[in-house]
Design a protein around this nucleic acid. Structure first.
Lengths: 205, 205, 205, 205
DNA sequence: CATGAATGAGCGTTCATTCAT
DNA sequence: TATGAATGAACGCTCATTCAT
């Protein structure tokens, strides 16, 4: 690679290594947090579990708190990405709803460490700074999805926060149960819940 | 009180004082937990805020963890009690549902410290022992309420955990928002949400 | 008992009760010290094990340290008493030696709690005040025993402390082993050791 | 040292520093334990006396108990080493016995802090794990010494534990006295005691 | 006199962060 | 730049002793 183009490269070898370290630290954190919450993870233990020296963590994150915020941001992004993975605007609203719910729920159930951490974080005093870290581009599809539902009179004329609560409230509650009991919901159960959530938000006129 | 009845009194003066201390400690804990979570409340600070010496806390609770478990149990009981405060089996299922939801939601919104603590606890690694602390008598009414709904075909034939998630999921999510924003939902909003939750669980055949 | 003689009674009923309490406390202390040394015995635990209220211990002993000193004095007295139990000045020196050694050793082995406590005490910083608590009358026989041995040229002309060390040194060391291994020395073994100790102190000219 | 041999050095500079710290901590512990036993030495005080921060102690020893065990092991090794310092298999058994006893005794008397600590430890509830820490190689000479004595019929046919008790029992008892009184035994006294111990173990047929 | 709940100084230990190498 | 030993404030908890009842 010519020297004058080096700067254009988004991912140099050094960057790749940096990302790799970051990933390792996140993984180690998820493992330790899963086992015993934020407290069960002293930085030294975290570093060892991640296979990096303690000092290295501080080169990637200003301090423990920032590491936690960053991890939350990362997971939030992943969850949204997974939720929208196969989003197809050409499908009907109802079909899109099904997919979105199913995707979101499956992400939680298939990423228990991530889900549990996010729940813990979201209900802890760390939450404050959270809103900043949303990758807003990902929300565009969701925004259009809601707008369409309102426009066509398919959704009840309730504030978006309320619709969101009617959807993600049950989703999170059931994901937590599914994880705690380590028994996956059957496909049929899941469809029942999706239908129920749809009933909650759909306007029957 | 006649002397010959003194022995029948469940609460002696000493017991009353003990309860009073317990209350003070719980109150101090709620204040400090509200401000900064479990960590922001060292036992010494807690003791000072409660106006008791450190050692006294340990006469009431085996250790910090048990204090937290006990506080959760206490709040859980309060919430259930508040939810069922004016439960009237002679009302229609729908009317009872409205009251239950409203009562539960208002308890959360009117007891933000208690609600936030309970949410934090429920999503933390402390959760494990929680189930034990349920005062099961209080659940009897709720049990009958669900049973009646199933029997009459008013509720969808879904497992009770699912119905519960469809009700308390949105309730908690909205209470958290209401508290965080420190703006109460209007009466009208609340009724909309109750209706939506009813739609989620009600069987339309 | 006529009232005017009450004062002459060394042991009134109250005194007897006092002794009984004292005994209970000593017993509880020996049990707890045996299990885990001085530290494993908080005053509250001690009181509970003794079946008396905490305050009562402080009516019998100024503080924990004095209780320990008193217990040591008590045991020291018991051991000397047991050692001299069947002392008979009319026997030969050698016969008396055998009995003394045997008695002393058996006291240790048969009172492991007392022995272990005394050893622990004697090698701890508590020792300082110990010498005071000897009941000197009991030593008279021993004093005469040694004096006789020196006078008749049966014992080596060494300072009494040295003779004592030559006798009680091995006795304590072996008692400790016997207790730790929970296997009693056989009669034959014991006689061998007594003979060896005698060889150590006896002057062969 | 030539550069190509540097790697062969068992003790790097860092190791040397570590040993130095360890020594400082041991020294401080001996000073404080001498003055008032295990209790008179809170970790903070210990750290200050050793001239290191508290945390540093915990980098060298898992906890206070392990520090005490390690100190005991260290002293035990020193004592054995001192006892065998000039061991010469070509000397007669009796000459070797004299040297061993004298060396052992002098170590105690010349290292009063070490001796007192070891005695305290050996009679405390800590003892349990002690046996592990013996440097067994050092015992080889002693083992051969005893074996030779038995083989040649010089020693009484008693179990080694008994012979040991007959030797070290008086040694420790006298060392404790010598230290407590801070008056050294004269050379003559010491020889008398050595002779007495020899009489205790030697078989006269 | 008898009681045992109350007290709070003091303990052993942890761990986020720094900085000499 | 990379490392991980060093740091010490802060924590949860204990327990000898007191004193109101």
């Amino acid at each position: 690679m010519p020297a004058h183009l080096a700067g254009l490269n988004v991912h140099s070898k050094a960057d790749a290594e940096k990302d790799e370290k970051r990933r390792q630290i996140f993984e180690a954190a998820l493992d330790l947090f899963w086992e015993g919450g934020f407290h069960a993870a002293p930085m030294a233990k975290l570093a060892q579990a991640a296979g990096v020296p303690v000092g290295t963590i501080y080169r990637h994150f200003e301090n423990k708190e920032e590491l936690i915020h960053a991890l939350y941001g990362d997971i939030k992004g992943q969850r949204i990405k997974a939720t929208l993975a196969d989003y197809d605007p050409s499908l009907s609203l109802r079909e899109r709803f099904d997919r979105l719910w199913r995707n979101g729920f499956l992400y939680c159930v298939e990423h228990p460490r991530e889900f549990r951490f996010a729940e813990q974080y979201a209900h802890s005093p760390y939450l404050r700074d959270a809103e900043k870290s949303i990758q807003s581009e990902l929300f565009e599809d969701l925004g259009r999805f809601f707008a369409e539902g309102y426009r066509d009179g398919v959704f009840k004329p309730l504030r978006p926060e309320i619709l969101t609560a009617l959807i993600s409230g049950p989703m999170n509650a059931l994901a937590a149960r599914a994880i705690a009991r380590t028994c996956k919901f059957s496909e049929e159960h899941m469809q029942d819940v999706i239908d129920a959530c749809w009933d909650a938000i759909a306007d029957r006129h």
